[in-house]
Design a protein around this nucleic acid. Structure first.
Lengths: 204, 204
DNA sequence: GGCGATATCAAACGATCGTTTGAAGCATAG
DNA sequence: CTATGCTTCAAACGATCGTTTGATATCGCC
């Protein structure tokens, strides 16, 4: 019988997300995770098999949602969406995730750590599961930026992805204004990013 | 008597840099580091006091050089340097560091990890020691971009920093062309970044 | 040559790591 | 009711962690 409204698996995933964001994959131990989740130490290996599998599940849970929203936003923007609309469809779901009060803001930092890890297994996992979304967007960007070669376009989208990862994880040095909430600060970051990226993509 | 041309301290710093880049600060053990450096395990605590101090020294060694070059490039560009020249003065020293065959390419990944760590001690260390360089550049950018408010300018420079960190650490999905060397690939990334960032900064 | 300082060494410290084990708890189906 | 299949539990596994110790080696200097 669970004393919480969440299942053991869900509690582990939530705690792992928070602790991976804070201390990294190697830095957060299963003892910390299970203790924060208020479950037995052995529960991780019982439900997920290993720490590595747990890490992968932390990604899957959020990225399915994130990329689903991106694709939905892309379709919602129509066949001839403007550059700003395309950027919004890509960036705003990430922003919304980062504003999720229930772990999403931790997850965007986990995602940034994953990039820093440069881990081949994770890269393959991300590419296999979500590469098609990137290609979907690239095709639409190409229509709005016909003066760019495919190669040039990919370089620029790569730059946008980097800036987005960095911005959502709040790595920057910009101090939040006192009158802004954390959510407003992130929203501001996203709007600046969209504006900046639109100009960068349009460059000759 | 050292069998190598490098001192024990230097060998430790070099090995630590490589292994921190590959496995992270928590993920790389002192046993791995001292083994790769071909020194005794106790040497780290003898020469640096602790693992945390070693991490800080890894940063200091490279960042003194990097930011020195940036300031020199800024001065070399003259008082009324163009936007592209300013961006070049900021970005190219980072590129050159990433091309350094003797650990520099590892270090840019260590730097990216440091951002992902979100570690307060490291952030303070970086801000204390190198914040003045950022302000120096900001002042010059402001002269070239008089239409931007100070706040707006800082947002955009923050975006550039994020994209730069991401690009130098080679986090992106862009595949290196077969005919390009690793160095050429990085150089290409830097040029794309300068071009993109210049347009983004100039946006209304 | 001998002496103090500096450096390196093998070995061990207690703590913590991911994982495994086997028993106990608990729901549901027969 | 008992039997069955999940799930949870405390405890322990061997391995590895950062750090410390005290002996040994190596150096510059009088």
């Amino acid at each position: 019988m669970n004393t919480s409204q969440f299942s053991t698996k869900e509690r582990i995933l939530g705690a792992a997300e928070t602790l991976f964001a804070r201390h990294g994959f190697a830095g957060a131990s299963l003892r910390q995770v299970t203790s924060a989740a208020k479950v037995n130490l052995a529960a991780v290996n019982y439900h997920f098999g290993s720490k590595d599998n747990l890490i992968e599940e932390v990604f899957r849970r959020r990225l399915d949602e994130l990329n689903g929203r991106r694709v939905a936003a892309l379709k919602g923007a129509g066949e001839d969406a403007s550059l700003d609309a395309l950027l919004g469809a890509y960036i705003r779901p990430a922003l919304e995730l980062s504003l999720d009060t229930d772990g999403g803001s931790a997850f965007v930092r986990v995602l940034a750590r994953a990039y820093a890890e440069h881990n081949e297994r994770l890269r393959k996992f991300l590419s296999d599961n979500y590469g098609h979304v990137l290609r979907l967007f690239a095709a639409q960007f190409a229509k709005q930026l016909p003066h760019l070669s495919k190669e040039e376009l990919y370089w620029r989208l790569d730059i946008v992805s980097g800036a987005l990862t960095y911005a959502m994880a709040d790595f920057g040095v910009i101090q939040r204004r006192a009158q802004d909430s954390e959510a407003q600060h992130r929203a501001l970051a996203a709007e600046h990013l969209i504006h900046f990226a639109a100009a960068g993509l349009r460059a000759p």
